[in-house]
């Protein structure tokens, strides 16, 4: 379908966002000697190997013990280290929620919680590993910044940017090979939404892998005479409320798109912003209160209603409610 569409963004290469993290992590380590790494037996999966090889004295294998890893990272911040923890998103959040809450967020520690294999697109491993609640858990914590970049380039830029920011951050990325459609030289600004495509009829607020699906959806909608604005919300917290309100003031309705539960995700953050400032019709694209299952990423996005076709349908539905 993509091939025949007039897309506003294009790609020549696909790569996993976790590799963007791995390459950004190495770069952050080269720029700042205080950057250190910890990993709970998933160095290969998190693409942390290059950093470990170049900076072995600043890298700590913790074994399969994520709770301890979070505590050690918190302790390392005390004399100025900038620890990056690496494990799957499930084990980076739910498994260690209380450790993050007390030792990192409440204690205001400068830990970067780097979480791969988030969402349905983890694929064949199934629901035990496909966390769809992590953004909700993390954004509820005071002091926590929550970032979900959309492709390899944006993930790399975000990784470098969070090393330069003082405070706890949850950085979410994934496993599947995904289109690279953003600028490799981009400057990543935490908390600043990116209006990728201008439009007038409906605003699509997308995050993570679903930003690409939103780009495809915009082209489909345009081919049918509907003008959609696409905004990349890479930072879910702090949320760029001004960008959201400015756009919806123009379009009058919104669709959120994310690889996460309806409950607690980007959609809820957008809805809260609209409800408190400028109530407008809104539709959610996400997982509606269910667990995932095994399958390929493409099959899962289709079955659970998260692909471009579903964003198009949600846009038409919300337009009818205007």
């Amino acid at each position: 379908m993509e091939k025949t569409l007039d897309l506003k963004f294009n790609y020549t290469e696909k790569k996993d966002t976790r590799s963007g993290f791995g390459d950004g992590f190495l770069e952050a380590g080269r720029r700042n000697p205080n950057v250190v790494g910890l990993c709970a037996d998933l160095i290969g999966s998190l693409k942390m190997g290059a950093f470990q090889k170049e900076f072995p004295e600043r890298f700590f294998q913790t074994g399969i013990a994520e709770a301890n890893m979070m505590g050690i990272a918190a302790g390392m911040t005390i004399n100025g280290k900038i620890p990056f923890t690496g494990t799957f998103a499930n084990f980076s959040t739910g498994r260690v929620y209380d450790q993050i809450r007390q030792s990192i967020a409440y204690s205001g520690k400068n830990v970067k919680i780097c979480a791969s294999h988030a969402g349905l697109t983890l694929g064949e491993d199934g629901a035990t590993h496909q966390i769809l609640e992590d953004v909700g858990m993390m954004k509820m914590l005071p002091h926590m910044t929550v970032i979900n970049p959309c492709d390899y380039n944006q993930t790399k830029a975000a990784t470098i940017a969070i090393a330069e920011y003082d405070g706890p951050v949850y950085l979410r990325f994934g496993r599947p090979s995904w289109p690279i459609f953003t600028d490799p030289a981009q400057k990543f600004e935490i908390g600043k939404a990116w209006k990728m495509i201008e439009g007038t009829d409906v605003t699509i607020f997308a995050t993570g892998h679903l930003v690409w699906e939103a780009v495809v959806a915009e082209a489909i909608l345009r081919s049918e005479g509907i003008s959609a604005e696409v905004i990349n919300i890479h930072t879910i917290k702090p949320l760029d409320e001004e960008a959201i309100l400015d756009s919806v003031a123009k379009t009058g309705c919104a669709v959120s798109a994310e690889e996460h539960q309806y409950n607690g995700g980007l959609g809820d953050s957008v809805a809260q912003t609209l409800a408190r400032n400028n109530p407008a019709p809104m539709e959610y694209v996400g997982v509606n209160d269910s667990f995932g299952e095994s399958g390929t990423p493409t099959q899962l996005l289709d079955k659970y209603g998260l692909d471009a076709a579903n964003i198009v349908a949600a846009a038409k539905k919300v337009l009818a409610r205007k």
Partner: peptide, 23 residues
């Protein structure tokens, strides 16, 4: 230097601080 009360976390934090001193 760290919040505590929810039990079991302090030794991990101390180990991290000790390793940072070693670095």
């Amino acid at each position: 230097r760290i919040a505590s009360g929810s039990l079991g976390q302090g030794m991990s934090v101390a180990i991290g601080a000790a390793q940072a001193k070693k670095i």
